[in-house]
Simulated scan of single mutants.
Amino acid sequence: MFIVSLTYRCELSEIEAHLAAHIEYLEQQYTLGHFLASGRKVPRTGGVILADMPSKEALEAVLAEDPFKQHQLADYDVIEFIPTKTNEALSSIRQTL
């Protein structure tokens, strides 16, 4: 499991210009089962993605397809973690060591 933290490198007007393509990219990744949740940071300085991928390398290949990455609009910080404890609503992502 991975948490991806995006931090914008440009003005929001440039983000807005590529937002439709970014949303289409997100939808594709949800359909493929790669992403579990995503959304904007508050304040709007970037976004966060919760991803379920087999490896960091596989995730980085998927992130390379993001229009925000392709246009160098955001920096990406990837954190791998093992969700060993969750509430019942998230029990499907729970893992054991």
Rank of each mutant, 00 (worst) to 15 (best):
residue 1 M to H: 09
residue 2 F to Y: 05
residue 4 V to T: 03
residue 5 S to I: 14
residue 6 L to S: 02
residue 7 T to C: 12
residue 7 T to K: 09
residue 7 T to G: 10
residue 8 Y to P: 04
residue 8 Y to V: 05
residue 8 Y to G: 02
residue 8 Y to F: 05
residue 11 E to S: 15
residue 11 E to N: 14
residue 11 E to P: 11
residue 14 E to V: 01
residue 16 E to P: 02
residue 17 A to Q: 03
residue 18 H to R: 02
residue 24 E to Q: 07
residue 25 Y to P: 00
residue 26 L to H: 03
residue 26 L to Y: 04
residue 26 L to M: 08
residue 27 E to P: 07
residue 28 Q to H: 13
residue 30 Y to G: 00
residue 30 Y to S: 01
residue 31 T to G: 12
residue 32 L to Y: 14
residue 32 L to N: 08
residue 32 L to M: 11
residue 33 G to H: 01
residue 34 H to F: 02
residue 38 S to V: 03
residue 38 S to Q: 07
residue 39 G to T: 11
residue 39 G to M: 13
residue 39 G to F: 09
residue 41 K to D: 10
residue 42 V to F: 15
residue 42 V to S: 15
residue 43 P to M: 08
residue 43 P to I: 05
residue 44 R to I: 12
residue 44 R to Y: 07
residue 45 T to E: 14
residue 48 V to Y: 12
residue 48 V to I: 14
residue 52 D to G: 08
residue 52 D to V: 04
residue 55 S to R: 12
residue 56 K to W: 10
residue 57 E to D: 13
residue 57 E to N: 15
residue 57 E to R: 13
residue 57 E to P: 13
residue 58 A to P: 01
residue 60 E to N: 08
residue 60 E to Q: 08
residue 60 E to K: 08
residue 60 E to Y: 01
residue 60 E to D: 10
residue 65 E to S: 14
residue 65 E to F: 06
residue 66 D to Y: 01
residue 67 P to A: 02
residue 67 P to N: 04
residue 67 P to F: 00
residue 68 F to H: 00
residue 73 L to F: 03
residue 73 L to Q: 03
residue 74 A to N: 02
residue 79 I to K: 10
residue 79 I to A: 12
residue 81 F to M: 11
residue 83 P to M: 05
residue 83 P to N: 06
residue 84 T to I: 15
residue 85 K to S: 14
residue 86 T to G: 04
residue 86 T to H: 08
residue 88 E to V: 11
residue 88 E to T: 09
residue 90 L to N: 08
residue 91 S to T: 08
residue 92 S to V: 11
residue 92 S to P: 02
residue 93 I to L: 02
residue 96 T to W: 12
